[in-house]
């Protein structure tokens, strides 16, 4: 038996994963998303990450960014290394990509604020 906490929503249900006759039985989740999360955790765990990128604007030295969708958990630090290489020279807007298809993972790194546009 394995215990797992669902991190999909703030409720944070504690789930139990059992094997019975070659079948996986998941209990303790309040909703379906928990089950999906548990299966993904056991096969290919994924996470989202948020960070900042440097800019060349004195008023706002960094701009917040995140990945547009989940990435494999074991690639987090690889993606962080890519994010830390960026120095923005354009006034990127909220939702616009800062890195397209980062490391070929099929997700973009996008800006999460309009501050550069406003200053």
């Amino acid at each position: 038996m394995r215990e797992l906490v669902c991190i999909v929503c703030p409720k944070g249900c504690t789930m139990h994963i059992d094997e019975k006759d070659g079948e996986t039985i998941i209990t303790g989740n309040t909703c379906k998303r928990g089950e999906k999360f548990a299966i993904s955790e056991m096969t290919e765990p994924k996470r989202t990450i948020c960070s900042t990128v440097r800019t060349s604007f004195d008023e706002m030295p960094v701009l917040p960014v995140r990945v547009s969708d989940e990435i494999p958990k074991d690639r987090i630090f690889d993606v962080m290394a890519e994010i830390n290489k960026v120095c923005l020279k354009e006034r990127v807007r909220r939702g616009e990509p800062v890195i397209k298809n980062v490391l070929g993972l099929g997700v973009d790194v996008i800006a999460t604020s309009d501050i550069l546009k406003d200053i």
Partner: peptide, 9 residues
């Protein structure tokens, strides 16, 4: 799953 700045903006 928005970030804080996205939610505020």
């Amino acid at each position: 799953k928005l970030s804080g700045p996205e939610y505020a903006e």
